[in-house]
Write a protein that binds this DNA or RNA. Structure first.
Length: 647
RNA sequence: GCGCCCGUAGCUCAGCUGGAUAGAGCAACGGAUUUCUAAUCCGUCGGUCCCAGGUUCGAAUCCUGGCGGGCGUACCA
């Protein structure tokens, strides 16, 4: 039984005589902030009293009189201005816990009306190696996928890979002009990545060389702007200080831009071979774009190369996904939607939703200045077009009730326009949701840019985390075999990375930090994995047959506060999992699991299990251990994190 | 210019649709192990919840204004 849900339903009945709209008041019943106020608190008497123009405590009293919870709770208490505090009867809690211990789903009740979800996550550019920026989408999306599925929904994960954009023109150009055949034979994907970086670098070089003089010319002008703004600052004019600040920021930004341009130019010019390549390919950016256009136009040679490259790139991605344990039901990249794009634009025109503006075909959404461009002036389609085609496919063919996009919050405006356009097209029965997350920042608190020099590759991040974990495992567990320690290091290292990502509120920005990434103490996956291993240690040393234990119809005895707290915590698992799905927030589950591990550690410290002489109490504690292990394992599994019986 | 987001302990962050004395982790300091794993536990220290108004019985949370920061903003995805 989900205790919170049950209490809310009881409260609902009691509220019916007080209000026509009990739902919002029912939700004011929640777990207590502090254990001394009992197990649950209902805060609805105060606002309700206001409606009835009564004293809150009087109303609370009247509400209690109607509240039928005698079978579940101790007599309710009124505290403070009108809080109703509820404490579950310990014998009832024990009975619920005994039932939980037998429940295969650990109190996670399947939804009564399953929906079909498409969860779109990870979605890297296949031409470039994945970097830390791809971590959040992959990890958050995967966790949501597993959680929604466990709740009983029909869920399809879709990796909407970028396999059709300008980056392929760059690779094709690089392949045609700069490839190292031996390297390509040996490690094709690495060679393609090198070619991409090279073409990108040379294009940037020419662009920056052309741009730099203009930037330099701006500096004196901007310095002058700062000087005159400074002269104009006056204490009476509020705006004058702001104008100065703006001018200063503007100047500083230009200086930064010049510095970065000079650095990139220097990198090419200080290397004679690079400089020679740059000189030999002055039009590289435009020529690479032409290769993309040729690919899109069906050029035989470019299509052949694309057919050769893409499977290899996907294979390389797969190896990273395997380490994360991430799987996709669908991998429908941009290219897959290519045949549908012209039809989408036609449809938009037919419905008079799209108009031509400055040569581009656009949809304008009320309240937004920026157009939603579905076809560029040169005739090419954009990712807006692809995204609309994707919606059509998901709604019409996959029959999705909801489509979740686990994507960086910086693309919020795009999704707002996309969803508005989709609704105008008639796709208004489907829930579209941008499950946005904060930007990955560098140590300097500036957004982590893909092209900035030392981007950390995702593979090397995983390797570093696993190597770090290996050191700690070797230190702490010399008694385990080499193979076991290797296996545990993989679980601990990768679990640490996944957990760091998930335990933040997804809206928050994310400061990338090695120490934090690799931490294995405190509020980390390791802590929870360790708690799990300790429970397993008890069951192992006690030579407990867990299956038989669960089926034994034994009673749960809550003889100490620690046992009671643990039992209550275990009974909250179903609620914790369900809450994640409400607003797609996996951090609610990490929080629950950390608390559970913490509560268990306290139980572990004060209640001996195997040496308990009272046989019934010993059995009860073994059952609590078993249920704790299963909750921790299941909970971590929903987040995509594994466990080991020994650490 | 317009739009979106953010500002909570020394650091990194929780704080769900307004509820009781604002919480964790890290760091610092002090304690706990002849005991089922010390990758642990307990305690101490640490706050003008950016500022000013407003709504409310009650505001970190909602509203208005200001300050500070980030991001996006017509043919990249």
């Amino acid at each position: 039984m989900n205790l919170l849900a049950e209490l809310r339903s009881r409260l609902h009945r009691a509220l019916e005589t007080f209000t026509d709209a009990p739902d919002s008041f029912v939700e004011m019943l929640k777990p207590t902030a502090d254990g001394k106020f009992g197990d649950f608190q209902a805060n609805c008497a105060m606002p309700l009293a206001k409606q009835h123009k009564q004293m809150p405590r009087d109303l609370a009293l009247a509400l209690i009189a109607k509240l039928d919870v005698a079978d579940l709770c101790e007599p309710p208490e009124i505290a403070g201005p009108g809080f109703i505090n509820l404490k579950i009867k310990t014998e009832r809690l024990a009975a619920e816990t005994a039932a939980l211990c037998r429940d295969e789903r650990l109190g996670v009740v399947p939804v009564t009306t399953p929906r079909t979800y498409v969860v779109d996550y990870s979605s890297p550019n296949v031409a470039k190696p994945m970097h830390v920026g791809h971590l959040r989408s992959t990890v958050i999306g995967h966790a949501l996928y597993r959680i929604l599925k466990f709740l009983g929904h029909n869920v399809l994960s879709d990796n909407h890979v970028g396999d059709w954009g300008t980056q392929f023109g760059m690779i094709i150009y690089g392949y045609k002009n700069f490839r190292d055949d031996a390297a390509y034979q040996q490690a094709p994907v690495a060679e393609l990545a090198r070619l991409y970086r090279l073409v990108n670098q040379l294009s940037d070089y020419h662009e920056l060389v052309a741009k730099l003089p203009g930037l330099l010319l701006q500096i004196p002008l901007k310095e002058q702007a700062v000087a005159s703004a400074r002269a104009a600052v006056s204490p009476t004019e509020k705006d004058s200080a702001r104008v100065l600040k703006r001018a200063e920021q503007d100047l500083e930004a230009s200086r930064e831009e010049i510095k970065s341009a000079q650095k990139k130019i220097g990198e090419v010019e200080s290397s004679p071979p690079l400089k020679a390549l740059a000189d030999a390919h002055p039009q590289i950016a435009e020529l690479a774009r032409k290769e993309t256009a040729k690919l899109h136009a069906g050029d035989v040679e470019n299509k052949r190369l694309w057919d050769e490259f893409v499977p290899q790139c996907l294979q390389a991605l797969e190896s990273v996904y395997q380490r994360f344990g991430v799987k996709f039901d669908l991998t429908l990249g941009e290219s897959w939607y290519n045949p549908m794009l012209a039809g989408i634009v036609d449809e938009l025109k037919r419905q008079h939703l799209a108009v031509t503006s400055n040569g581009a075909t656009c949809v304008f959404i009320d309240g937004n200045d920026a157009p939603f461009i579905v076809q560029k002036a040169d005739g090419a389609f954009t990712y807006a077009t692809t995204d609309l085609a994707t919606i059509r496919h998901r709604v019409e063919n996959l029959r999705a009730d909801a489509s979740l996009y686990v994507v960086d919050s910086r693309q919020g405006e795009h999704f707002q326009l996309l969803f508005a356009t989709a609704r105008k097209m008639g796709y208004d029965k489907t829930e579209f949701r941008h499950v946005s997350f904060g930007t990955v920042l560098g140590e300097d608190r500036r957004p982590f840019k893909t092209r900035s020099g030392d981007t950390v590759g995702l593979e090397s991040l995983l390797d570093e985390a696993v190597a770090n974990a290996r050191k700690i495992v070797d230190e702490n567990s010399p008694h385990l075999s080499d193979a076991d320690r290797g296996r545990i290091a993989e679980l601990v290292g990768i679990g640490a990375i996944i957990y760091v990502d998930l335990h933040h509120n997804r809206d928050s920005d994310y400061v990338f930090n090695w120490e934090k990434m690799l931490a294995t103490t405190g509020d980390t996956a390791t802590y929870i994995q360790y708690a799990y291993a300790r429970v397993c240690g008890i069951l192992r040393k006690g030579e407990v047959d867990a299956v038989a234990l669960r089926q034994g119809q034994h009673a749960i005895l809550l003889s100490t506060p620690q046992e009671r707290v643990l039992a209550l915590q275990l009974n909250r698992f179903g609620q914790a999992v369900a809450e994640v799905a409400v607003d797609y927030r996996p951090n609610l589950l990490t929080q629950y699991l950390f608390e559970t591990a913490n509560v268990f550690a306290q139980f572990y410290g004060s209640c001996n299990v195997l040496k308990e002489s009272d046989e019934a109490l010993r059995t009860s504690r073994l059952l609590l251990c078993d249920a704790t292990a299963r909750v921790l394992k299941q909970g971590l599994d929903l987040l995509g994190i594994g466990v080991a019986d020994q650490m």
